[in-house]
Amino acid sequence: MSMLPEQSAVTVLGMGPMGRALAGAFLDAGQQTTVWNRTPGRDRELVARGAVGARSAEEAVAASRLIVVCVVNYDAADSILRRDAVADALKGRTVVNLTADTPERARGMADWAAEHGIRYLDGAIMTPTTTIGTPAAVFLHAGPEELYREHRPVLDTLGGAHTHLGEEIGRAAAYDIALLDIFWTAMAGYAHALAVARAEGISARELAPFAKGIGAILPPIFEQTAEEVDSGHFSDQGNPITSAVSSMAHIVHTSEAHGIDAGVMRAAEGMARRAIGRGHGADGFVRIAELLGRR
């Protein structure tokens, strides 16, 4: 059993796949855990393992000093937390909102929490449900550092790496958006590559080992180009935008020759050509980050 004091008990609101994983990790760590979900029945397995199933959100909130929220988006979180009875029960307690949404929504929730005497931390989960409770999990947090430190012992029982990104409450959501941008853009590119490869008679299994090689060269590129973006000094490193545009054009031509939509690559090519048109043809591809950021 946990050696943490009584007030370290935790409530988890939201019994989707991630919410159940969070509650399960708390239980595995010996935490006294209360669970609640808008749709009844999803907590049966957790209750069988020792969780307390609350009959209402108000009851769930009243059971713990720390409330972890993980639902589909902030609309769902609002519909639970902003009910008068729940807001009253939350007064003086801490909400750690691990629901994914935009930085603006996180800031709005924090403002509402402050108005109602609720202590608030925002966060993001950057790894899938299977990692929760293991060293592979990655959690990002934002909000008052003192509040984060107070609840860190309980949050640590979720496993993995926990990083406090600062007191600006939208920071975790901003990291989440940026990192998911990388992930989904990459997955869209991979799906497109699989379609082009198949059209050329290459199976996904045949392509996958070489695709992994492309993935492996990206981390050092991320490091190098991060310094360039922050400094505003862009180098071509032997691959100027003019060369990149040439290879992009080949991808567009091959795709469309097979009747495959090349809209994503055409968009990337268009951004690169815009950079060239502004006199940056000798710079590296990441120069487009600066152009995208201009208003």
Rank of each mutant, 00 (worst) to 15 (best):
G170R: 08
A257R: 11
G232H: 03
E59D: 14
I80Q: 00
V68F: 13
E6G: 03
I118Q: 00
T131H: 05
V154R: 06
A161K: 11
I214F: 15
Y175H: 13
Y175G: 05
H151G: 03
Q31A: 13
L165M: 08
V71C: 10
G281Q: 05
M187G: 05
H253S: 07
R107G: 04
R152N: 00
R42N: 09
T163E: 10
I80L: 00
A257L: 12
R105E: 05
L13T: 05
I260V: 05
Q237R: 11
I251M: 11
P144H: 02
R198S: 12
A275S: 06
V61N: 14
A124P: 00
R93D: 09
A199R: 09
I177W: 13
R82H: 05
A188E: 06
T130I: 06
G117F: 08
E168G: 09
H253V: 12
W36K: 06
E168T: 07
A275E: 04
G133W: 00
I169Y: 02
L218K: 04
A268N: 05
L165Y: 10
D230E: 14
P220F: 11
F139P: 01
W36Y: 14
R205D: 14
G123K: 04
P209C: 02
R149L: 04
D176R: 05
R44K: 13
A76L: 12
V95M: 02
G259Y: 07
G50V: 13
G293C: 06
E269Y: 01
V35Q: 11
S247Y: 08
C70K: 09
I202S: 07
Y190V: 15
R83I: 03
A87N: 00
A257I: 00
K91F: 05
L13Y: 11
A51I: 10
A113S: 04
G53V: 11
G201Q: 11
F183L: 15
P144M: 02
A195R: 09
